[in-house]
């Protein structure tokens, strides 16, 4: 059954999309910032995995933690040094600021790593297998599993730890959280750091599947947009549902209309959704 195969491909893609978008969604939902840097963070995570593999022979799945840690520090620094200063400004200002930082970072990557596409060739890739005549490449399944695991970990971090509760408190009401003794600026920095962490970790994950280049960052950012609008903002389950839906839709869309139209299709869907349900399919209406 070709349709089951397409569905499986879509779900594998979708888990990665969810992981790409969940950090972006968190930053948007909690800080009210559209983080244009997100795509570049993902590419940076991929590069960390690439160089760790090349020079130290570290498997990219292990680099997930290294990349996450490095990107967390970076995100924390960027938020406390720059974005916190204009966090209360209108969307135009914060978006433009992250765009400016993105120009700098992306240019730095182009100079340091060049625009060449690179690929990690694992010496011993996981074996592929077939379940009920559905072909499943081992590395993709593992990446999907890790992506889901990361997303679930983030969910529990937000629910079950003090930091997570502080983040959710700030998301619900910034002033009230401050009155209750939450250090809002620090929580902002931690939230942005976690967003960057998720981006870096995802970057390391997808380095086993996709070629790596600084030019990819805007494509990742576009996916994050679509997933957020599909699933609704600032919630982990929303990003998960949105990501899986987008993966399945792109998979079937590519099959029916040709793979070159997959991007147009997902962006068209985004515009229709923005028109009909701006709060997302799961989201509440009117949340800004």
């Amino acid at each position: 059954m070709i349709y089951f195969q397409i569905l499986a491909n879509g779900l594998m893609l979708g888990a990665l999309y969810a992981c790409i978008a969940v950090g972006f969604s968190l930053v948007w939902g909690v800080l009210n910032v559209i983080n244009i840097l997100h795509g570049t963070f993902i590419v940076l995570g991929s590069y960390i995995a690439f160089f760790a593999f090349r020079f130290a022979g570290i498997h990219p799945f292990v680099s997930v933690f290294i990349a996450g840690f490095v990107l967390f520090l970076m995100g924390y620094a960027i938020q406390s040094a720059m974005i916190n200063r204009v966090i209360a400004a209108p969307v135009l200002i914060t978006l433009t600021l992250t765009f400016g930082i993105d120009l700098v970072l992306n240019n730095a990557m182009l100079v340091a790593f060049s625009a060449d596409y690179r690929k990690i060739n694992l010496p011993s890739p996981l074996p592929s297998f077939e379940v009920a005549s559905i072909f499943l490449p081992g590395d993709r399944v593992a990446a999907m599993g890790l992506a889901l695991l990361l997303t679930i970990l983030l969910y529990f971090l937000l629910r079950a730890t003090n930091v997570g509760r502080a983040i959710i408190a700030v998301r619900m009401d910034r002033e009230a959280a401050a009155l209750m003794g939450v250090d809002v600026k620090r929580v902002n920095a931690i939230t942005f750091g976690i967003g960057a962490l998720m981006a870096g970790a995802t970057g390391a994950l997808i380095s086993v599947i996709y070629p790596i280049s600084p030019l990819n960052s805007s494509a990742f950012l576009g996916k994050a947009f679509v997933v957020c609008v599909l699933g609704g903002l600032g919630s982990v389950p929303g990003a998960l549902v949105g990501g899986l839906m987008l993966g399945v839709l792109e998979s079937f869309g590519g099959f029916w209309f040709g793979p070159e139209h997959a991007v147009t299709l997902s962006f068209g869907l985004l515009l229709i959704l923005l028109f009909a349900r701006p709060g997302g399919l799961l989201g509440k209406r009117g949340y800004e």
Binding site: T96, L97, G100, L103, V104, L105, N106, N107, A108, L110
Partner: peptide, 8 residues
């Protein structure tokens, strides 16, 4: 591009 970013 980075210079434009710094200006921004």
């Amino acid at each position: 591009a980075a210079a434009l970013g710094v200006i921004i």
